[in-house]
């Protein structure tokens, strides 16, 4: 049946796209394919992937979290300001702040029945403002003693960049939560058919809030990683990360309308975005001009991944 073939095509399209992109960039710039460049690419992808896998949970429920970029920046500021006093606990504090902001955004969405894009847009504004205020609008560079605490984030370990190892651990964790826990099943059910999930006794509101908590905590973790890589915290550190993160989720084949998707797909999507980014830099495209392409890619990916016959009205 052609419908099934289209469905199968849809599923393998992201992986095929990734392979083709790697080959194209490799053909243009053979040095791209040497292992060191690829490892660099992987470590550059890690932050984007962590950001994207968190928001994947919310997107699976059919919602969206627009506060992740602001949360990541704020987390970097929290680390930079507190690592002196708290040491390693500053990382925990940052991630806890992420979970808290996700919880508040989730409650605003579920309890006050505000559409998630509005609720998280507002939360994002609050977080961005907070980061600017507490940092006095400055980027805070970590001193030598403080840098001792960020060694676990950067540099190679047994020849592998630590970002890649952290990313892999989070991949394993997020994938397990998504595929193997009742929560993972519930959010897929909510995304694919909220009314049926509700009638089946699923505590829909609670599951959604948990998804936002995960998204916030992952965003904060991404901010911690950024702070570690750049040895600084800044209220604008993660700017221009929101669009690529959501693009990564959708390019990987997770439906923006919810119900269908996985963390592995988000990984593929994040790699695609990363390869495109690196490829463009290789070719010499202005870094700000890249946003133009990500915007276009997002629209294209949503258009390809949604089966419009199943969705009569899109708002």
């Amino acid at each position: 049946m052609p419908a099934q073939r289209i469905e199968r095509l849809r599923r393998f399209l992201p992986v095929a796209t990734l392979a083709v992109l790697v080959l194209i960039v490799g053909a243009l710039q053979p040095e791209f394919l040497n292992p060191d460049t690829l490892l660099d690419l992987a470590s550059d992808t890690a932050v984007l992937f962590v950001l994207a896998s968190g928001v994947s949970f919310v997107i699976l429920t059919g919602g969206i979290d627009l506060s992740i970029q602001a949360m990541a920046s704020l987390a970097s500021v929290i680390v930079a300001l507190t690592v002196d006093r708290l040491g390693y606990a500053s990382f925990v504090a940052a991630v806890a702040a992420g979970a808290l902001s996700g919880w508040l955004g989730g409650l605003a969405h579920v309890r006050l029945k505000i559409p998630s894009f509005v609720a998280t847009l507002a939360v994002g504004g609050v977080l961005a403002g907070t980061a600017l205020v507490v940092s006095h609008q400055h980027s805070i560079t970590l001193g030598a003693t403080q840098r001792a605490y960020i060694g676990w984030i950067t540099g190679p370990w047994l020849g592998i960049p630590r970002e890649v190892i952290i990313g892999a651990l989070l991949l394993f964790f997020a994938d397990t939560v998504q595929r193997r826990t009742p929560f993972g099943r519930y959010i897929a059910a909510i995304g694919a058919g909220e009314a049926a999930a509700y009638a089946s006794g699923v505590k829909v509101g609670r599951q959604k809030v948990v998804a936002f908590v995960i998204s916030g905590a992952f965003a904060a973790f991404a901010g911690v990683m950024l702070a570690g890589r750049l040895a600084s915290g800044s209220p604008t550190l993660a700017n221009e990360q929101l669009l690529p993160a959501i693009a990564a989720v959708v390019v990987g084949g997770t439906a923006i309308t919810g119900g269908v998707g996985s963390i592995w797909r988000t990984l593929v999507g994040a790699l695609i975005i990363s390869v495109v980014r690196t490829g463009m830099t290789f070719i010499g495209v202005d870094i700000f001009a890249q946003e133009i392409l990500f915007g276009a890619v997002l629209v294209f990916a949503v258009a390809v991944t949604i089966d419009r016959s199943k969705i009569p009205v899109v708002k």
Binding site: T181, A197, Y198, V260
Partner: peptide, 24 residues
Amino acid sequence: RTEGLVLFLSVAANITLASLGRLR
């Protein structure tokens, strides 16, 4: 089709949706 089943989930996932706790 809206309240009875999550149409885009599998037969298995629908059968276990109200009792996932026991499969844990």
